[in-house]
Design a protein around this nucleic acid. Structure first.
Length: 110
DNA sequence: AATTTGACGCGGT
DNA sequence: CACCGCGCCAAAT
């Protein structure tokens, strides 16, 4: 993490999210030192699909556990399918047990 | 070049 | 409990 690029850092963090776990935009933003820049995290993730890295952006949802960005995955169910294939239960576009599988970068990476 | 909007989050009304 | 507005920064129009 030499480069202090906001986006680059987001990618690095998201890449470290373990399977079966999820995190939120705000958590990442907070870890980056800008708790109120959650929007930028969203933008960064949107770029991930262009970045062509193995970035599991589907493991990042909003603070409520809703799959707000599923549309950006091309297919409406793509994000959900990916999560389900990892053992994460989704219901009504929302992550079940969100709090239980929540992965906090500031806590896990600290 | 200026304005709007967006995969957000939180506090206030 | 529902709706509104603000903050933050970058990209799209």
């Amino acid at each position: 993490m030499d480069n202090a690029n906001f986006f680059r850092r987001v990618y690095d963090i998201v890449r470290q999210i373990p399977p079966g776990r999820v995190t939120s935009y705000g958590a990442i933003a907070q870890f980056l030192g800008s708790p109120q820049s959650a929007r930028m995290v969203g933008w960064a993730l949107n770029n991930t699909k262009t970045e062509l890295g193995d970035i599991p952006a589907h493991r990042v949802v909003n603070h409520n556990g809703f799959l707000t960005g599923k549309k950006a995955f091309g297919g409406i169910n793509t994000m959900q399918e990916l999560l389900e294939s990892e053992g994460i239960e989704i219901q009504n576009d929302q992550v079940i047990r969100f709090q239980e599988i929540f992965w906090d970068p500031a806590k896990e990476l600290s």
